[in-house]
Design a protein around this nucleic acid. Structure first.
Length: 414
RNA sequence: GCUGGGGUGGCGGAGCGGACAAUCGCACCAGACUGUAAAUCUGGCGCCUCACGGCUACCCAGGUUCGAAUCCUGGCCCCAGCA
């Protein structure tokens, strides 16, 4: 029997409570996966992560390949040992960097387009907005170009050129040694049209086949691989891509790519989740807004990774529990950077039990730490935001277990 | 006292006759952030106005000029070197 397995413990509608078994431990799902791109969740220690009951972290293959380099990581005993994390781990394939270092720079957009993200406008209006936006973009030097064979990166570290292929990604992911790895894909831009997205999707499928071939050749029993569904916001493409992932022998279903808007994301999940094998774990790549998670667990998503909560923390954005006034309207965020907190002697929360909130730190002090660029702010706020994310996930799990997921959703979404 | 240099928006510091409400930093204010080029990025930042636009400004007082932060005269102040 494989050391890997995924067991659905309980279903509530399409939402499910699961156990994702890996050689490094079991992940209770639904779970949030903090992002530790460079083999560290920025600003916090492994001890911090363990106290926060973080179950699994995700690192980035491309970043680690550039620095410190694969050989060094092997010298240091592999990714787990190097970063002193003995729990389950994921690595991304580098496919997202085709977008973030390529299309995102060229198109001047994020994956969920900020100028479209807040509502569900008419299709025509969306297209018009995209056209307007596209015309206003100032071209900048992108750091990745892509063709069917490969992605070619200009290193953001030193400007050197790097050819990136599915085989290379899988080989390196094998050497890094994360438990759960991803097939190489191309993440497209929200601004790409259906023609580009279609061609890109076929390219991704070829890359995923190549990833699988390489992965099987490695005969590594201590890793499992996820496929990735692409297809942008287009129904026919998403369905075709979901079928592709379903038909290939992946351990898990990854769902990636341009969601364009929050409401489109739900449509996408609606199209694909019934196609993807339900006995596999499903991972929604790069999504981790509180509303996004609450709105998508009901489609059967098991794991989420996202840089947002930890990045937000470093910018002074503190996620707020519903008990402390966190709601959709304020994006569950309190920004201690703002002047109104300068002389605020009150603690952030009476309900949160994280190190920041239980440690007697006032909002005014956090405001000061931020502006004084004191490093403590990063650790405290990151711990807090991860605590809130974990609280959210544990309440979701409890909600599914006790048939009260709707109540949990109402509590958080308001 | 002599010689030389200088006084510009909260600060530092450009500009040296029109394109200057004044480059650029810093500081400050606001917004963004979703598989982390991210302790980052984008705006704003004299006064009035949602805006078009208007008003007051480059130590002070005069002057030259169609036009002055920029040139001239006088004053006040600062810095460096020499006595």
């Amino acid at each position: 029997m494989s050391v890997f397995s995924f067991k659905v413990v309980k279903e509530l509608g399409q939402a499910r409570l699961g156990e994702l078994h890996t050689p490094c431990g079991t992940i209770d799902t639904p779970a949030f996966v903090p992002v530790g791109t460079q083999a560290t969740v920025k600003a916090v220690s492994i001890d911090d992560l363990q106290k926060l009951k973080i179950q699994v972290v995700l690192a980035n293959t491309y970043h680690l390949y550039l620095r410190p380099g694969v050989e060094t990581i092997e010298c240091l005993g592999g990714l787990h040992k190097m970063m002193n994390w003995n729990g389950p781990m994921m690595t991304d394939s580098g496919g997202y960097q085709v977008f973030s270092l390529g299309w995102a720079i060229e198109h001047g957009v994020g994956k969920v387009v900020n100028f479209l993200a807040d509502d569900s406008r008419e299709e025509e209006e969306l297209k018009r907005q995209i056209t307007v936006k596209t015309k206003s973009i100032i071209p900048r030097q992108k750091l990745c170009v892509v063709d069917d064979e490969k992605a070619t990166f200009i290193s953001h570290v030193d400007g050197s050129l790097h050819v990136w292929t599915p085989e290379k990604s899988i080989e390196i992911q094998g050497k890094l040694g994360a438990d759960l790895i991803f097939a190489m894909d191309e993440c497209t831009s929200p601004i790409h049209d259906s023609d580009y997205t279609r061609n890109s999707m076929y390219r991704t499928h070829l890359w995923e086949e190549r990833s699988l071939v390489k992965f099987r050749k490695l005969h590594n029993k201590f890793q499992e691989i996820y496929g990735v569904v692409q297809g942008g916001p287009f129904e026919d493409l998403r369905i075709e891509s979901a079928k592709f992932v379903a038909d290939n022998h992946f351990f898990g279903n990854g769902i990636g790519g341009a969601m364009v808007t929050k409401s489109k994301m739900l449509e996408v999940l609606d199209w694909i989740m019934s196609i993807l094998p339900a006995d596999r774990p499903s991972h929604l790549l790069g999504i981790g807004g509180i509303d996004d998670i609450l709105n998508t667990v009901g489609y059967g998503i098991d794991t989420y990774d996202c840089a947002f909560p930890t990045r937000l923390a470093r910018r002074g954005g503190l996620l707020m529990l519903p008990e402390d006034g966190g709601k959709l309207l304020n994006r569950w965020t309190l920004n201690v950077v703002r002047e109104e907190f300068k002389n605020d002697n009150s603690p952030l929360s009476q309900n949160c039990e994280c190190e920041l909130c239980s440690g007697g730190y006032s909002k005014g002090y956090l405001h000061h730490l931020y502006w004084a660029k004191e490093l403590l702010i990063f650790r405290l706020t990151t711990i807090h935001n991860l605590y809130v994310m974990e609280k959210l996930m544990s309440e979701i799990r409890e909600g599914i277990a006790e048939n009260k997921l709707e109540k949990v959703k109402r509590k958080w979404l308001g």
